[in-house]
């Protein structure tokens, strides 16, 4: 199994080769391309657009050409990509939401193809509170996904929906795509319609931990629909995106995240994909001098998960 990590806080536009080199040195062979950093969520929630995606596609491709070359040169495969999010901002002007749907999303798909990336992770709409039910919320997300599905089919890209959370007075609870039963049915329905794997699932360990999901059961229910991972840890309270095995809650100091269940789940579904970490914040938490060590440690944990997952196969 290959090990990957998100490019956020590692790959710099001015010198992508240095960042990809760091990844290689640390022991990664794949990366999760953080396209989302080009249109930050906190800007979107303030109804601010930066114009990055307004550039013509050719210009965007030229912008990312050095990244692509650096990845190739260092032998790092862009195994998954994160589309900017949110894809819909409740209460924002129509123009902003139309821009996200008609400009940002399709251009993200184009860039995914340009980087020869097979999977793009998208966030479902967070609208249940407003619309009154998860079903009504999914209907809106499905409409959005439907708008991208023909591109996905044509380009051979699988769009991956991710288990998300939402906040109730700051208390994090399950958000879109946290019901494996429904997600499986919805993925199958869309794939049947297109006769291709246009939709898949991205299992996010950190979000699952926040929403108290049973990792093993969740993975087992989704099975081979799980295409990519966002591996990271937290204290079960905040979305911290830290290194696995970091958090404990008892005097015994044993991990309060169910990593055993995670491994059992991956093993149970015969997961062969990339063990990709979404641990960008780790690199800002550690001093610059320790960044390389931190990356190496993350890759080492990836190898541990790979070894454990492959045991008994």
């Amino acid at each position: 199994m290959e090990i990957g990590v998100q490019t956020k806080n590692i790959i710099k536009d001015k010198d992508p080769l240095a960042g990809f080199g760091q990844l290689k040195q640390a022991g990664f062979t794949c990366c999760d391309f953080s396209l989302d950093v080009k249109l930050r969520n906190y800007d979107l929630y303030q109804n601010r657009l930066n114009g990055f995606f307004s550039r013509p596609l050719e210009e965007l491709e030229a912008f990312f050409a050095p990244h692509k070359e650096a990845a190739e040169e260092t032998g790092i495969r862009v195994s998954q990509m994160h589309m900017p999010y949110p894809n819909y901002v409740p209460g924002a002007p129509d123009e902003l939401n139309e821009y996200l749907r008609n400009v940002v999303a399709p251009k993200s798909m184009e860039l995914c193809r340009f980087l020869e990336c097979p999977y793009i992770v998208v966030h479902g709409f967070k609208l249940a509170k407003y619309l009154g039910s998860e079903e009504a919320e999914w209907e809106k997300t499905e409409g959005f996904l439907e708008s991208l599905a023909p591109m996905a089919e044509e380009y051979g890209i699988t769009i991956c929906i991710e288990n998300l959370y939402t906040g109730i007075g700051g208390h994090i609870v399950e958000g879109p795509c946290c019901d494996a039963h429904k997600a499986a049915e919805r993925i199958d329905r869309m794939n049947d319609k297109y006769g291709a794997e246009v939709l898949g699932f991205c299992f996010d360990t950190g979000h699952a931990n926040l929403a108290g999901l049973d990792f093993e059961k969740f993975l087992m229910e989704l099975g081979e629909r799980v295409k990519v991972l966002h591996i990271h840890d937290n204290d079960g309270i905040s979305d911290l995106h830290q290194i696995p095995f970091t958090f404990t809650r008892t005097r015994e100091n044993t991990s309060s995240t169910d990593w055993d269940g995670f491994v059992r789940g991956l093993r149970g579904i015969g997961y062969q994909g990339v063990l990709s970490f979404e641990t960008g914040p780790v690199l800002t938490a550690f001093p610059g001098e320790l960044k390389e060590e931190a990356l190496r440690f993350i890759a080492r944990i990836g190898r541990y998960f790979a070894e454990e997952t492959e045991k008994g196969r």
Binding site: D214, T248, R249, S256
Partner: peptide, 9 residues
């Protein structure tokens, strides 16, 4: 279920 102090489903 109690996962080492973290209560989950």
């Amino acid at each position: 279920r109690d996962v080492n102090g973290h209560l989950v489903r």
